[in-house]
C-alpha cells in the first residue's frame, strides 16, 4: 500500500516553522502494519520517517504496536525487541533531523514483554512508555501475553524544531480510558499528549457511527480541554482476522476543538502545526491548571489510604 499525503492538508513549509520558535509540526503516520512482520514494518517506518522529515515535520507519531501489528497472541515473544536491538538502533539512527514515536513489543532482561511506545530523538532512544492498562476483556487479551508498565512520566520534547520547552506525556490507547493516567501526566506539566492507538471499530448501531470512534472523539476533546493541552491521537488502520481498525487520527487543540479533522480509514500521513500561543490562549481563557487543587487531592488520597490501612 502506498501512503498518500492527505490532499486537504498541505505539508508545512519548513522555513515557516523555523521562524516560529514556539511551534513545531507533528506528522501522524496512520498506517496498517503487517501482522507479525517486523522486517517489513521496519522498512515502512524508515520510509515514512524520511518522508515526514522531508515534508518538514519535527516529530512523527506512529500507532500502537506499529512495528508488529496488534492481535499477536503467541507471536509476542517472536516479534519482541530489546531496547538495544538492531531494529531500534536503525530507527533511532533515522531520527536525527526528526523525532519519532514508534510502537513495539519490548522484551526486558527478565523476559517480560511490554506493549511499548518508544520516543526516538537525536539518534537515540530518549524515552520509553510501557502501556500500563492492558485491556483483557471482550476482543482484547493483552494480559495473557504482555506485562503491564507501572508509571506515567512526563518528559521534555527534544524535537529539533521546538526551540522552547514543550512537555509531553505518552499514553498508549487503553491508558487514555483511565482519567487518573491523564491526570497524573498533566500534574507533571504536559503541553502535548502523544497517544498511539490500535483501536478496533466495533458497534455499528445507527446514530453512533462506529461506537469506539465516538468514544475516542469524546475522550480526546475532553482531555484536551480539561488539561488545556494538545492531544495527538494516532490510530492505525487495516484489518486483522476480520477486525477493522478505524483510523480517525487527529490533533485536538488545547481548547478542546479538533484542529485537524479526523483522518478516514485509509493509510495516510496527517500533518499539523502545534503552537505555544494556542496553549497560552486556552490557559488564559480556562486557567484550570492554575486552579487545580493538588493539595486537596493529596489530602483526600492520604485519608483514603489511612482508612484502608485501618480496615
Amino acid at each position: 500500500m502506498i501512503v498518500q499525503q492527505r490532499e486537504t492538508v498541505a505539508a508545512p513549509d519548513v522555513a515557516d516553522v523555523a521562524a516560529e520558535a514556539d511551534a513545531f509540526v507533528a506528522a501522524l503516520a496512520q498506517v496498517a502494519p503487517r501482522l507479525g512482520d517486523v522486517a517489513a514494518n521496519l522498512e515502512r517506518h524508515l520510509e515514512i520517517i524520511a518522508q515526514a522529515a522531508g515534508a518538514g515535520a519535527n516529530i512523527v507519531v506512529f500507532p500502537e504496536l506499529s512495528l508488529t501489528g496488534y492481535f499477536l497472541k503467541d507471536l509476542v515473544p517472536d516479534v519482541a525487541l530489546r531496547i538495544d536491538s538492531d531494529e531500534i538502533s536503525r530507527l533511532a539512527e533515522a531520527c536525527r533531523d526528526i523525532d519519532a514515536v514508534i510502537g513495539c513489543v519490548l522484551e526486558t532482561d527478565d523476559t517480560r514483554f511490554h506493549n511499548a511506545s518508544v520516543y526516538l530523538s537525536g539518534g537515540r532512544v530518549a524515552r520509553v512508555h510501557a502501556k500500563v492498562y492492558l485491556p483483557t476483556y471482550g476482543i482484547f487479551d493483552e494480559q495473557r501475553y504482555l506485562a503491564a508498565g507501572d508509571r506515567f512520566r512526563a518528559f521534555d520534547l527534544t524535537t529539533p524544531g521546538a526551540n522552547s520547552r514543550w512537555r509531553a506525556g505518552m499514553l498508549v490507547c487503553e491508558d487514555m480510558w483511565h482519567p487518573s493516567a491523564v491526570s497524573l501526566l498533566a500534574r507533571q506539566g504536559v503541553d502535548v499528549f502523544l497517544v498511539p492507538s490500535a483501536s478496533p471499530g466495533r458497534g455499528v448501531l445507527r446514530g453512533a457511527a462506529l461506537g469506539t470512534a465516538h468514544s475516542y472523539d469524546a475522550m480526546t476533546r475532553t482531555y484536551a480541554q480539561l488539561f488545556t493541552a494538545y492531544v495527538v491521537y494516532c490510530n492505525r488502520v487495516g484489518y486483522e482476522d476480520g477486525i477493522a481498525f478505524w483510523g480517525g487520527s487527529r490533533v485536538v487543540g488545547p481548547d478542546g476543538a479538533t484542529v485537524i479533522e479526523p483522518a478516514g480509514a485509509d493509510e495516510t500521513i496527517v500533518y499539523q502545526r502545534l503552537e505555544k500561543t494556542a496553549l497560552r490562549r486556552a490557559r488564559i481563557a480556562y486557567p484550570l491548571l492554575r486552579d487545580e487543587r493538588h493539595d486537596v487531592t493529596d489530602a483526600e488520597t492520604e485519608r483514603i489510604l489511612r482508612r484502608r490501612t485501618r480496615d
Binding site: V204, L205, R206, A209, L210, Y239, G242, A265
Partner: peptide, 17 residues
C-alpha cells in the same frame, strides 16, 4: 438498526483487505 453506510464501508474494506 444499523448505519448502513458505515457497515458497507466496513464490509467492503474487509473483503478487499
Amino acid at each position: 438498526e444499523i448505519d448502513t453506510a458505515v457497515v458497507e464501508e466496513l464490509l467492503c474494506g474487509f473483503i478487499h483487505d
